[in-house]
Amino acid sequence: MSEVKLAAETRTEFGKGAARRVRRENKVPGVLYEHGMVPIHLTLPGHELLMALRTPNVLISLDIDGKTNELAIPKAVQRDPLKGFLVHVDLLMVKRGERVVVEIPVVAEGELAPGGNLLEHVLTALPVEAEATHIPDSLPVSVAGLAAGAAILAKDINLPDGVKLAVEEDTAVLQVLAAQAEEAPAGEEGEEAAQA
């Protein structure tokens, strides 16, 4: 699991106008939540945060106003729907040794059995409980040789030490769907019947 250090500043101005001013400076408004504590409103560096968020469940070490260091994980990220830039981020403060529930991307590896079958990702990410500083980046799952009708359940996925499922064991994660027979183009069946 990667840890990224970011400098953050506390924010005292709120609302749309203040958020726009922050974004014009290539920064991102955000909120740091801690269990049972008053949220801390922050301004974060835009480009560095964008790069950090490319890693799922990244652990962020925040240097707040040069006074305190806090560990956090992304809780919610809002992006502009057209341009994709960061609009706002919610972070959850964590402590070393604390267990958190996060979603880990499932990565299918290998080739399905011959026959043109399709692999459906019922869940693209698997909810698990893990220690905040030891969250796996992804969960590889072998689908080699699976035929139509086969399914991989949550209990079938090998989890790293210290990681536990946060869903029912019988939850389907991946399944193999049978290839669909190609339909004849419209009109061909009528022509063949007329020629007979």
Score class of each variant (00 low, 15 high):
I73A: 00
L91M: 04
R11M: 09
G110T: 06
L71Y: 08
A186V: 12
Q78A: 14
G145C: 06
V141W: 08
D170K: 03
N158V: 14
I152Y: 00
I152A: 02
D90L: 06
E168L: 08
P45D: 14
V77P: 09
A19S: 15
T10R: 10
V87W: 04
K83V: 09
R21P: 02
R96N: 05
G116Q: 09
L82D: 05
I40A: 07
V87A: 04
A108R: 12
F85Q: 02
V107L: 09
L49N: 07
R20K: 14
L59I: 02
K27T: 15
A7D: 13
K95R: 15
N57T: 03
E192D: 13
P45V: 04
A196F: 11
L32P: 10
E191R: 09
G162E: 05
R24A: 14
R54P: 11
N158P: 00
A154L: 04
V176C: 02
E9Q: 15
V107I: 09
E103H: 14
G84Q: 11
V128S: 04
E48Q: 13
G115T: 10
A172S: 02
R21M: 05
I104A: 12
S61L: 03
A194M: 12
P136S: 10
E183L: 14
K5C: 12
V106P: 00
T12G: 03
A113C: 12
T133F: 14
H35E: 11
G110D: 06
D63A: 07
T43Y: 10
I135E: 03
L146Q: 01
L139K: 13
M1L: 02
V31M: 02
E34P: 08
V28W: 00
G15W: 08
G115E: 04
A184M: 09
L159Y: 08
M1A: 08
E182Q: 12
T55G: 01
G115M: 08
L123W: 06
M51F: 03
D156P: 11
E192W: 13
L86T: 06
N117F: 00
E131I: 15
L177Y: 06
M93Y: 03
M93P: 02
K27V: 09
P74L: 01
A113E: 15
